[in-house]
Write a protein that binds this DNA or RNA. Structure first.
Lengths: 219, 219
DNA sequence: GGCCAATGTAAACGATCATTCAGGGGATGC
DNA sequence: GCATCCCCTGAATGATCGTTTACATTGGCC
């Protein structure tokens, strides 16, 4: 009987990462780390695991990254930056109507979290293993995304196009934005591709719900 | 320079667990495990950590629990069972109108996830460290809660009191239910007590948003 | 060919982990 | 006094971890 059991996450329902071409080793390490972190969680994935999945030995990691920590930060930061870019782009390209902005934001956000489930999973779940200085820029990016959404809500309310829920006479748009973001983010935990609803359909469903939640006027 | 760094979660914003009375040791262990798991995560919290927080040594754990795994399952299962009970009770006590049922469900669910943030955090985030047979009954309870909500939505739609969003002519009430649950569950990640909004106000805000999302007829 | 920088291997290092085990009180019942 | 629990301690066990180190192997460039 073994004395120590390494905790193993219940196998996530994620599509296997198919290996196409011989990749540059840094990219291979990143890809292996993504899928391993997503499936089993950062603290229990060993450097040996990651490197074995690339057909290398453990020591080789340190030719490309300073530490296991830095590897995690690298893959999370790149995912997060890409997400922020997508959100900005969606809002900027949706015209002037706050309703179109909100719908475009939610659609883009949801489609991305369906399509890149693994990356979203890791970026959202494993961030807390980074230490303070590493986590700073990622939290900043998250706040930026939230503030984009808050901005759209404020604009829509002031234009009289949104009638957001009020509690005791006050409307707390920050809480509303957080609620919408939680909803859209955690779809990556359970959405299964190839099911009854496509990624684009989920995007439209969530956009519809968001518009209803903030009381968007029709027409 | 130390060779191995134990990963530490960024300190969560959780109220400290105040120690009132000398508790029976099993209860003290449970409470210590809750706060430690919530703050730092199951795999990096050691048995030594938990027991030291109770003023005991590591070996004493095994007089009360078979293993560290069983301790985690114990505290998650009790939290989950309580949550299921609360949801059932809320719906049952809300009368016949599906709108009242939905509002009561969301209010109870949100208030609980604000008030017992720590317990909710652990139950939702650390469940995946359990092995298959341990996780079975918890997944069952989660499905049961989701099905309570789906049931309310179906009833409201058939009664013509809900007009849920349709995508390409079909309405996927299961996805809508998941979206609402995600929203309400993850409030435990960021809600800070003592802020501008009380737990009850958050409950009403979320209930309002849920009613709007499913297109509940007013009046 | 000779040199250099990249990139790999294999072994070692120091530390920490969950769990087990032999034994020590202290209460309770007799 | 004595046996029988329960609950604890403190040390040991066997394993695994992230990282470092010494040393190969490669391929381009002079």
């Amino acid at each position: 009987m073994s004395k120590r059991k390494v905790p193993v996450r219940a196998a996530a329902v994620v599509a296997p990462v198919v290996e196409r071409e011989p990749r540059p080793p840094v990219e291979a390490i990143r890809a292996a780390a993504f899928s391993q972190f997503a499936e089993r969680g950062y603290p229990v994935v060993t450097v040996r695991d990651i490197m074995k999945a690339c057909g290398l030995t453990q020591g080789a990691l340190y030719n490309h990254f300073k530490s296991k920590d830095e590897l995690l930060h690298d893959i999370i930061a790149s995912t997060q930056a890409e997400l922020e870019r997508i959100c900005l782009q969606a809002v900027a390209g949706a015209g002037a109507d706050p309703r179109a902005k909100l719908a475009a934001f939610v659609r883009a956000y949801v489609v991305r979290h369906c399509r890149l489930r693994i990356e979203a999973l890791v970026a959202n779940r494993e961030i807390s293993w980074l230490d303070a200085e590493q986590v700073g820029d990622i939290r900043r990016s998250r706040r930026a995304i939230r503030d984009i959404l808050v901005g759209v809500l404020v604009q829509g309310k002031e234009a009289g196009l949104f009638d957001p829920p009020q509690i005791d006479g006050r409307s707390d748009l920050k809480s509303v934005a957080m609620a919408l973001l939680d909803q859209c983010t955690h779809i990556s935990l359970w959405y299964v591709p190839g099911g009854r609803m496509s990624e684009e359909q989920m995007g439209r469903l969530y956009a519809d719900m968001a518009l209803r939640s903030v009381g968007a006027k029709v027409g």
